[in-house]
Design a protein around this nucleic acid. Structure first.
Lengths: 348, 348
DNA sequence: TATCAAATAGAAAGCGCTTGCTATCACGCC
DNA sequence: GGCGTGATAGCAAGCGCTTTCTATTTGATA
């Protein structure tokens, strides 16, 4: 029924071993033999049985990529870059690896389950993207899984995630704190003193770091923060919209709103516009990430550009062992402040 | 070193067969025995060897999702919906399947390679999203692969893709033609007669169908199309920007621009704004897809909403055999015209 | 021409799991 | 009290491939 290695061998009049060697190309096979085998493969339309070879060779060509939300370009861009370096189809021949993008939806349980699934598949490498959840037990559970994966020979890379000590995982961390601070200082420099902040979900590292950066910026300029100025929400547009209405209700005198990311900022812009407030004349807005659409917002969004594609590509190369890990297994990736039309001096 | 079924069996004082049956839960095992086994699994931190069980059972829990561009929310949204129905982690217990999102980058070769890779992994199902490339040999090659996959028991579903006859693939097709026509007729209804069209890449079905719809709309109202009014490009913002400049150069008297999709439309808006043309007062703009950011554009984008999430979810359910295939294996998914601020009557 | 070393091909032993079939055991029934 | 019966558990034969080790061939060397 299904064609097996043995069928090909029979047809090419060689042993299964030889066919396997031709297909894997890591053992000398005479050109004439190889040709005969390849011909048989072609004629029989043979496709290697992945599970069987993975079992026999004790390795697999699966590479896992964990993302929080695949519908969010923030992750899409990283995943795309990682995948392009995985060497999957399109990469160099022979190294055909299957990149598995797993959508955790930000749920710790799903994250763990996916890690187990990847461990089960004996994945060659795993790249985890996006902020981590700060719940202690979960953190420990993930660390345990990562350690176990690393021990089993799976290369583990964290991209845009804080380091996971003692797990053997390589980390490329985004400097969310520094970026957040720079952004807020930019606004302060323009003259803003009453700045609202729309944070992401409470329990994520990304949320905390960006917020800490923001607060550090305020503190550095002796601005005391009003607790009413911070609202937590999700990392999406809707959340930005609602949070902005809430901020406006709490303190209509705000002259600027900093959002946890660009999507949130877009929602904020929408809310401000509906409230009849012009951007940036009456309220300045800033985002984070510099996703492709941010430059198209009207006015274009002031934000912090994160080199998502570059970081992803690097993570991919490290995962494939094609680039050396940074010293200490940790590297910090900085963002770049992009000043655009959505921020300006406060009115008055 | 690595823990195997046998180790667990030894520890629980049962045979490997019993352990396997406990883990798969498809054979009666006494409660006390099960408990003992589960305890051993836990103590040894045992994780099933995926390839081995896939080999032995001749099935796998991998489900492939092919997308053109994972960084594009159009695909991200569908992939996310498909994945949520795959029943991966988060779905019902037992049915833990690994969704594999494969990024073809729109390249026919990569598409084929990925299909082979999935065939090699003996994927349980494969969902192909997005428009197909119209090159005849490639089409035949893909059809062959799909047929072979279906024969091997892999369920194949096309989501937002034209049907592939004789392959056994179920197709949920988007009514790109109808949507395109409706959109153009909307503009005509507003009084537009000179409408530019920024199409996608030439060789894709999606491009052709939307363009055909547009032309059908023009024809239905007796408007003769000027060949200068159509420009081809990619499905991204940049392309929309450049194509719009080109259109403006060719015929500055255009009163509306229809874009192949929302990203392209955003680029068009940017170009028009830079050219000092107000939207919609001087030029109307329309997109396609209604991605989340479209409502945030200023003015909000008139477009055709495609129920990406619903279609993806349905495709996922069909792929998992949890929903019946549509009669004839083909269903058409209609779009809905969303009239917003970016379209209005032509000036004068 | 005899000898040795490459070069190349094959035999066979698993890799870790599933599953059809068989064995065992405890009951309950005639 | 012997025996059918259902409920469990184990045996063992693979699943299709890789890879070590061995056999064979060939060409070069002395």
């Amino acid at each position: 029924m299904t064609v097996t290695l043995a069928d090909v061998a029979a047809r090419a009049q060689v042993s299964p071993a030889t066919v396997s060697r031709v297909l894997n190309g890591n053992y000398p096979v005479a050109a004439s033999t190889r040709e005969r085998v390849l011909k048989a493969v072609d004629e029989l339309d043979y496709v290697l049985n992945g599970p069987a070879s993975a079992l026999a060779a004790a390795t697999s060509d699966l590479v896992g990529i964990l993302v929080n939300d695949i519908a969010d370009p923030f992750f899409g861009i990283m995943a795309s870059a990682i995948q392009s370096e995985i060497g999957g189809p399109g990469g160099r021949a022979g190294g055909e690896r299957l990149a598995v993008v797993c959508n955790t939806g930000g749920s710790p349980e799903r994250e763990l389950t996916y890690l187990t699934l990847l461990q089960r598949q004996r994945a060659a490498a795993v790249v985890l993207t996006g902020g981590a959840v700060e719940d202690a037990p979960h953190k420990a559970a993930v660390a345990g899984k990562l350690r176990r994966l690393a021990e089993a020979g799976t290369r583990v890379v964290l991209c845009g995630r804080p380091p996971a000590p003692e797990t053997g995982a390589i980390a490329l961390t985004f400097d969310n704190r520094g970026g957040g601070r720079e952004l807020t200082e930019h606004l302060i420099g323009l003259g803003h003193r009453r700045i609202g902040y729309i944070a992401g979900p409470e329990e994520r590292t990304t949320t905390r770091h960006r917020l800490e950066g923001h607060r550090a910026g305020l503190a550095a300029h002796g601005i005391e923060e009003d607790p009413r100025w911070t609202v937590h929400g999700r990392y999406d547009r809707r959340s930005g919209y609602e949070a902005t209405l809430e901020l406006l209700r709490r303190d209509p005198s705000l002259t600027a709103v900093v959002a946890a990311n660009d999507s949130v900022a877009l929602g904020a812009c929408a809310a401000l516009r509906e409230a009849g407030l012009r951007i940036p004349h009456e309220v300045s807005v800033a985002g984070f990430d510099d996703l492709p659409f941010s430059v198209d917002a009207v006015p274009a969004l002031t934000t912090v550009r994160l080199p998502l594609a570059e970081a992803g590509a690097r993570a991919g190369r490290i995962a494939m062992g094609r680039e050396e890990a940074p010293p200490g297994g940790i590297a910090t990736v900085r963002g770049e402040l992009m000043v655009r039309g959505s921020s300006g001096p406060p009115r008055g």
